[in-house]
């Protein structure tokens, strides 16, 4: 390792030594990242896995093993049935609609000759905005009396709109809906805000996907006899957007699983009327952090990780399968 060493064996210098030195520096360069990955991502998963079989609480010195009791509760108690219902309602509503709207908006915007950037900017605004602030703004808009939504609906009362729309007629008679307080609407309002916030993101990804579709393909499709816009969409656009779609669906569903801000903003306690918006993240927060029921919180965490893992594995499988695209 001294200067004389290197002078004495130049061959060693050129072959073995740099490789070894490179190996050592490589490990030094990756060590911090590795350590943090283990500490912050892997260890917590392991800890959650272990704690999910205990009745541990913060502040207690010990804990008891309770076997699968926590998981058993998750699968049998009605609170958790509500949790799964709310979570899957949210994910299965927000994902397809925000993906569909994102695709629709992207196709419309892409076919325009002017004002494209303006629409793109506007639709992307919610993605940037602090969700909790915007949730509060939505809360005002949906306010039963002073909210603009009900005020607008009330304007339809007594006009021809009422006759065409029985739902409105009913509410004109009985009073406008309590959007956030009504069990029938609560989760759908939360879904709506989720879609409002997320579809611009999908739109931008689809717009990027559309620019990669070769223009000559559309010409070829035209020459080949694809006469309608729908046929060209089926023959060229949709297959070309396949990889984008797989990705957009994955990321949308993972984001939907993580919904929390909206629900905490609307319902600081209780997650909506009759726990109708009791999603998993909220349950983790409420059980694990607020009520210090770490065992059950960990079990929900493990379930949550299981769902996310499943979605990602499906995505990777789809991507692998279509590796020969393009």
């Amino acid at each position: 390792m001294t200067a004389t060493d290197t002078i004495l064996s130049p061959q060693q210098l050129s072959a073995a030594d740099p490789a070894r030195r490179q190996r050592r520096t490589a490990w030094m360069l990756t060590a911090p990242a590795l350590a943090l990955m283990v500490l912050i991502l892997l260890a917590p998963v392991a800890i959650a896995a272990v704690l999910s079989f205990t009745n541990y609480s913060l502040g207690n010195f010990g804990f008891d093993w309770v076997g699968v009791e926590n998981y058993d509760k998750l699968l049998t108690r009605s609170t958790y049935a509500k949790m799964f219902t709310a979570t899957f309602t949210y994910v299965l509503t927000v994902t397809p609609i925000s993906v569909g709207l994102g695709l629709g908006a992207a196709l419309l915007i892409n076919s325009l000759t002017r004002l494209r950037d303006l629409y793109k900017t506007i639709y992307f605004l919610p993605v940037m905005a602090t969700l909790i602030a915007m949730s509060i703004a939505w809360e005002f808009m949906l306010h039963p009396t002073i909210g603009v939504v009900n005020q607008t609906l009330a304007k339809g009362c007594g006009t021809w709109v009422e006759t065409l729309w029985p739902w409105l007629a009913m509410h004109c008679a009985e009073g406008m809906p309590l959007w956030l307080g009504n069990r029938r609407y609560a989760i759908w309002v939360v879904c709506f805000v989720g879609i409002w916030q997320g579809f611009g993101f999908n739109m931008v990804l689809y717009l990027a996907g559309l620019t990669s579709v070769h223009r000559e393909l559309y010409h070829a499709a035209e020459i080949d006899g694809a006469r309608s816009g729908w046929e060209r969409f089926r023959l060229v656009t949709w297959p070309a957007l396949g990889p984008t779609t797989v990705f957009v669906v994955t990321i949308s569903s993972i984001r939907s699983f993580q919904v929390f801000d909206t629900i905490e903003a609307f319902y600081p306690i209780g997650a909506g009327p009759g726990k109708s918006a009791y999603v998993m993240m909220f349950a983790i927060f409420e059980k694990g952090v607020e009520q210090n029921l770490i065992g059950i919180g960990s079990a929900i965490t493990m379930m949550f990780l299981g769902f996310v893992l499943m979605i990602t594995l499906i995505q990777r499988w789809l991507v692998e399968r279509k590796v020969h695209y393009g």
């Binding site: 000559e216 010409h219 070829a220 006899g225 297959p239 396949g242």
Partner: peptide, 17 residues
Amino acid sequence: SDRNLSMVFQSYALYPH
């Protein structure tokens, strides 16, 4: 599509899927 012509494109324009 109604002109009954065939065309070969510079980029070949094959449907990748």
